[in-house]
Design a protein around this nucleic acid. Structure first.
Lengths: 152, 152
DNA sequence: AACTAATACATGTATATACATATAAATTGA
DNA sequence: TCAATTTATATGTATATACATGTATTAGTT
């Protein structure tokens, strides 16, 4: 669907301005289908993201700060997301012996299992939902990274 | 910044998978600088979005549903965003005389004034922050719209 | 060692997102 | 016409985002 239809607006200040809105809309669209797919497993996409990050180091533990800096949305409140994962017994908290300020997080067996199932679903969704060739995806990645030259 | 640095991850299942994450990250990045710019005016970017939509029809009024379907994030709770704008006297609510179920929303003079100032700021930000040529932006728009072929 | 600053995390608050439910008004159709 | 359905909005709840503050621990300085 054209952006014009999606947000019922036809006049944009420039192609660049339109690109900005197009990125925001596409991200919403992607997040929505992703969340939908995770719903039957009782996970939000932020919770899934934390589990994925933990998997990267598993069976090692990770501290909250290390998780936070790997999150897509940097302003995520990781302690609170971990709270919810802990209630569901998908992760385990423990105080670091190195540095008692640090809380170490580790996937449980249940977390690992759930992650395997949901990852399969999530990967399928990405492949199905995103209709671009490998070459186009590469081009898209280059354009997005150029666009973000000016850092925060 | 490369996505790899941004989320400290080097292995992606495919270029397409990376593109998905890249879109999500870029949207977060854009939303963040946008919100930052609006902050000194006491507006969130959703509140700004509603004001912009209202401006499109001003001085006519719009009903909640019409605003909602023009929002970038379709799951936005427009009545609640309008609540906050109303408290700040930036918009005015009234019951439609056509259909008493509809609530009509209209920009106030204060809302219109604030919008003019913030729009200037926001447009400047878009121009400054998004480092692509017109041609690249056009390409980006085409790629995003192709990517979204499979609708929700 | 004791004081200060910095760090890591938890927690609090306001707003937003996502979705379910409630309420009132309009529409449909028997 | 009146009951049932649909529509428009409001409201409630859980989670997330964005940011400020609190608390414990570590690191740095004198």
């Amino acid at each position: 669907m054209k952006l014009e239809q999606a947000i019922q607006s036809t006049k944009f200040k420039s192609e660049t301005h339109k690109a900005g809105l197009n990125i925001l809309y596409t991200a919403w669209w992607l997040k929505t289908s992703f969340s939908q797919a995770l719903k039957e497993y009782g996970l939000t996409h932020e919770q899934y993201n934390v589990l994925r990050i933990l998997k990267g180091k598993h069976p090692e533990q990770m501290c909250v700060r290390d998780i936070a800096c790997r999150m897509i949305e940097k302003s995520s409140n990781v302690p609170r997301i971990v709270d919810r994962l802990e209630i569901k017994k998908l992760v385990k908290r423990s105080v670091s012996s190195f540095d008692k300020r640090e809380t170490m997080i580790q996937l449980t067996a249940a977390g690992l299992l759930l992650l395997e199932v949901t990852t399969k679903k999530a990967d399928e969704l990405f492949d199905m939902q995103l209709c671009v060739t490998d070459e186009e995806a590469k081009q898209l990645n280059e354009l997005l990274e150029k666009l973000r030259q000016k850092e925060l």
